[in-house]
Simulated assay, not measured.
Amino acid sequence: MIMVGVLCEGQTEENMVNDFLAPELSEYGICLVPTILMTRMPAGGPAGKGGVSKWAKIEKDLHKLLASTHWAAVTTLLDYYGLPQDSPGMSDRPSGSAVDKVTHVERRLAEHMGHPRFLPHVVLHETESWVFAAAEQLGDWADDPTLARELKRQADQAGGPESVNDGPETAPSKRILKLHPRYVKTQDGPVAVMDLGLAALRAACPHFDDWIAKLLALTPCGLAQGPQR
């Protein structure tokens, strides 16, 4: 088994690693270990989990992870929606598709960190995009076939789950909550995606597929698998 550290934005992403990605990739000899960003400490209260407003916080945690030599690689599970505006690559994003923009940001992140074991991944547009790919599974979980049909319709209209946009009121998580107010991000999303499975999610989400292919390329077993699109 090779060890890969995953810097996660919050508890939802941490659960996605623990409940879904780690079991799937363990079959290829990859052990994913999530580390969560601790942020948002309200006055008089405990630190919160999830969300970060400054790149410096992310960079500090990445340096800590990369300093540990037992990691074969360090990657990230950060949402493009809400990524700090001072992050490398955000200020000079090219025009074009969301994929063009996010791959530009990932390239700049890698250049900025300048570490051979760093494999940045920024989710288009947040992990709830993966839940759009698992619309049928979420509908089954919620016992609501209408929910599944509407999520699938919106994803198809956008051009795929990863193309569902990142507006303040139209981001994937906001859309799901509007349709299903009882949706619990940290629980329902990971369960639905887990039921969908890795191969199906890779087929539905090309940017996610590229990330998984890079992780699999770390092992001789994974190299033989190739992308699943």
Score class of each variant (00 low, 15 high):
V122D: 02
A217D: 15
P84L: 05
K54A: 15
T146A: 12
A67L: 08
K178C: 07
E126A: 03
A133Y: 09
Q157E: 14
K214A: 13
F118T: 02
L62P: 07
F118D: 05
A192C: 05
I30N: 05
T127V: 15
A199F: 02
A142L: 11
G114H: 06
C205D: 00
L83C: 03
S87N: 07
A43M: 12
L198D: 03
T12R: 00
Q85E: 15
G5T: 01
V122E: 06
G5I: 04
G222K: 06
T146E: 15
A67W: 07
G89C: 05
L7Y: 00
P168M: 07
A217T: 06
G139P: 09
D61R: 14
A200L: 05
R117E: 04
Q154C: 08
T146L: 14
G160Y: 00
D100G: 09
W71K: 08
P120A: 04
V6Q: 00
R107C: 15
L223P: 04
P190V: 03
D195N: 09
R175H: 02
L32Q: 00
G222C: 01
T35E: 12
A199G: 04
R107M: 14
D86R: 02
A22I: 03
D143F: 12
Y80A: 12
Q225E: 15
Q154E: 13
A134P: 06
Y183A: 01
M1T: 11
E169F: 07
T69C: 00
L215W: 05
L109S: 04
D100R: 13
P190M: 01
A72F: 05
T170Q: 05
A148I: 10
M1Q: 10
L37E: 00
L151I: 04
P88H: 11
E27T: 07
W141I: 15
I30K: 07
M3K: 15
T76V: 06
P84V: 02
V164S: 00
E136S: 11
E150I: 08
A56D: 13
G89K: 01
L215S: 05
A171P: 03
H70K: 09
W71R: 08
M41C: 13
G167R: 07
Q225C: 13
E128L: 06
E136Q: 12
A171Q: 12
A22Q: 10
R182F: 12
L62F: 13
Q11V: 11
E136V: 12
N18Y: 02
G222E: 12
E169P: 06
D100P: 09
T127E: 08
H207P: 03
S97Q: 00
G114N: 08
L218E: 10
A192T: 06
L198W: 06
K49W: 14
L216G: 03
G48E: 12
Q137M: 00
E136R: 09
E136P: 06
A56Q: 13
D86T: 07
G167L: 01
G167N: 05
G159Q: 04
L196D: 01
R93N: 02
P116R: 08
G160R: 03
D86H: 08
P94R: 09
K49G: 12
M3T: 15
R229H: 10
C8T: 01
L201P: 01
A203S: 10
H121S: 02
E150K: 09
L201V: 10
H63S: 13
G5V: 02
H121N: 03
S87L: 09
Y28K: 03
Q157V: 10
T186M: 11
D188H: 13
A22M: 05
T76G: 03
M113H: 08
A204P: 03
G29A: 02
A155N: 04
L215C: 04
A203T: 08
H115F: 01
